[in-house]
């Protein structure tokens, strides 16, 4: 029993490390998908104990144009801009017209996706996803 618990905890730790590594690698990925005209927004994931907060900066998007969905453990945020944005000051992207945001994130394994809530204010989106509660099993 103790061995199983240890192995499961170890597997969990490895899954979490893989997720963190993937997140770290994202720092070096290009931020504009030129083909789709989508840009990855700035975001942060905050571990707030009994919940996980995902904060996303979505300037020039309106509340009605923001879509948040959770499929399995993937959080997807999409939002279209009120007007297309030209990144002419960055020559590499000079010919790209950005029309929306897209963010895909892998969430920690213990979140309760169905209880997630989101608020949007002044172009900032905050998604609150509670963690599943652990409960004590009575040993007979």
């Amino acid at each position: 029993m103790a061995e199983e618990w240890f192995e499961e905890s170890f597997r969990e730790l490895r899954r979490e490390l893989r997720r963190l590594l993937r997140e770290a690698e994202r720092l070096f990925e290009p931020v504009v998908d030129a083909e789709r005209g989508e840009v990855e927004p700035l975001y942060e994931v905050v571990d707030a104990g009994d919940k996980v907060l995902v904060r996303v900066d979505l300037p020039k998007a309106s509340k009605e144009a923001v879509e948040v969905s959770i499929v399995g453990r993937r959080l997807v945020v999409r939002a279209s801009l009120r007007e297309p944005l030209r990144l002419c000051d960055v020559p590499y992207y000079a010919r790209c017209e950005v029309s929306g945001y897209k963010l895909e994130l892998e969430l920690p394994p213990d979140v309760d996706a169905e209880s997630a809530q989101a608020t949007f204010r002044s172009g900032y989106l905050e998604v609150t996803i509670p963690r599943r509660r652990s409960f004590r099993v009575k040993v007979e």
Partner: peptide
């Protein structure tokens, strides 16, 4: 111009964070 500035400085913010 707040939202325009936020949208345009996203890349600079990312580099600054590093």
């Amino acid at each position: 111009q707040e939202e325009e500035i936020r949208a345009r400085l996203r890349e600079t913010m990312k580099r600054t964070m590093e």
